[in-house]
Amino acid sequence: MKFRRKQRENVDINLASLIDVVFILLLFFVVTTTFTRETQLRVDLPQSVTGASADDQQAKQLDITISADGVFSVNNQLLPKNDLATLMEALRKESNGDTSLPLSISADGKTQHQSVITAMDAAGKLGFSHLRMTTVEAAPAS
């Protein structure tokens, strides 16, 4: 006796919707991903109401002072030139390569914005991450 085998149904998995979902996820990740890594500096601005005293700061820190004319000094030593390379070399020499030191930028109120950006750029290129912009406490309104 010959038994007939039951024909098996071909089972097809429809992958069209799965491919659509994967494609949309791929587009989402490509659009939301940034491919350039921007250097960022953490800026700790002092509060003018309470004002932090200089006593609680660490023993060693770097101070960049910028005059109204744009003349740089690092730890009260005037720099011979007012360019980025000279400022970076002075910061490298004063810090001995330790970029974990806090860095304070004190600029005159009439200093050009470019001089402050140059100081921040030098700090960022050398890898300093603790940056403070010093200000004076505002006089109370009379």
Rank of each mutant, 00 (worst) to 15 (best):
S104R: 15
Q58D: 09
L18A: 15
F128T: 02
E94I: 00
K93L: 08
I19N: 14
L45Q: 07
A54N: 08
T65M: 06
T118W: 03
L103G: 04
V21S: 10
G124L: 02
A122Q: 07
T34R: 15
L18P: 10
P102K: 08
I66A: 03
L103E: 05
I66N: 02
L79W: 04
I24P: 11
G127F: 08
D63V: 10
S17A: 14
P102N: 09
N82T: 12
P80K: 10
T39D: 07
H113R: 08
I117K: 12
N96C: 04
V31M: 13
T33Q: 14
Q40R: 15
N82H: 08
R42P: 03
V22Y: 07
A54P: 00
L131S: 03
Q112Y: 00
D20V: 12
G97D: 13
E137R: 11
D83G: 06
L79S: 04
L25T: 15
T134R: 03
T36W: 06
L91D: 05
D63M: 08
L91M: 10
F72C: 01
A122M: 07
F72P: 02
M88V: 00
T39I: 11
P46A: 08
M120C: 09
T135L: 12
K81F: 06
Q40T: 14
I105C: 04
D121H: 03
Q58E: 11
F28W: 14
S17T: 13
T50E: 15
K125D: 12
